[in-house]
Design a protein around this nucleic acid. Structure first.
Length: 260
DNA sequence: ATGGTCGCAACGCGA
């Protein structure tokens, strides 16, 4: 089984790129983020034509997460989680979607950006991460053998080498001590980044602006964090840099784990 | 080429 996560930056703008990738990459379950549409706007037919079913969690134009999975996979326990934005109390967001696929519990996650260190969304980001870690810890305590993974855009660069020039990020979000501690908390409750051991270097995101991709000025902010029993089944991983090239790419690339 | 981007409900805002 091959699982992948991809921040697609609008599925309607990206449907050709995503379905083209799926037609070549033998992905069984794709977690998507930033679909930027409501369920009724999702281009379902193009995925169904390739033999994928969909689970869509979108509420508005600015985020939303989803899964595309091969038809033969058994799905249960779908959970649609809602986040409430600070300062916009009537606006809810779709940032987390969970489901169990053939016994493996997966989450598609779009962690809040944080904006600036002194912005209310930064506090929101830390609280969101704290809540996620607490919920995940409870589940792993209840079942230490749980095969599960958190997959998605964490909007955190855990190491200095996960950005092209750490000096440029002084005082910025994504690299702060608090965000990195929030990320490490997932490791402390028993989750492992299953990609980094195979690929200690490399980025998953390059801004569209300022020729960041041609200059390889990227960030590593998309991760697959697996529980022990799932991590030990991982045989191979990749960060698909080629998906940042060519026409109309997302600013993020797919991150993939093959599971035996 | 010394500044160069996308996406959306958009002529502004978020990433």
């Amino acid at each position: 089984m091959r699982i992948a996560t991809w921040n697609v930056n609008s599925i309607r703008a990206r449907v050709a790129r995503v379905t083209d990738y799926l037609s070549r990459a033998d992905i069984d379950i794709l977690a998507m983020q930033e679909i930027k549409c409501k369920p009724e706007q999702f281009p379902r037919a193009e995925f169904e034509a390739l033999g994928y079913e969909l689970i869509i969690h979108g509420l508005n134009q600015w985020n939303g997460v989803a899964f595309a999975y091969k038809k033969h996979i058994q799905v249960s326990d779908i959970e649609y989680e809602f986040s409430q934005m600070p300062a916009f109390n009537d606006v809810f967001e779709a940032r987390a979607l969970g489901a169990t696929f053939d016994g493996v519990r997966l989450w598609s996650l779009y962690v809040p950006n944080g904006r600036e260190l002194d912005h209310p969304h930064y506090t929101y980001k830390l609280e969101w991460l704290h809540n996620l870690a607490a919920t995940t810890a409870e589940q792993l305590e209840a079942d230490p053998d749980l095969q599960m993974a958190l997959m998605g855009d964490f909007n955190i660069a855990p190491l200095d080498t996960d950005v092209w020039d750490i000096a440029e990020f002084a005082g910025s979000t994504h690299v702060s001590e608090d965000e990195r501690m929030a990320f490490e908390a997932f490791e402390q409750i028993g989750l492992t980044d299953v990609v980094r051991p195979d690929h200690p270097e490399g980025y998953t995101y390059w801004d569209y602006k300022q020729l960041r991709f041609p200059k390889n000025e990227g960030m590593r902010i998309d991760f697959i964090l697996a529980s022990e029993t799932l991590a030990e089944r991982v045989s191979e991983t990749e960060m698909v840099r080629a998906e940042r090239k060519g026409d109309l790419p997302s600013d993020h690339v797919p991150v993939v784990a093959s599971i035996s």
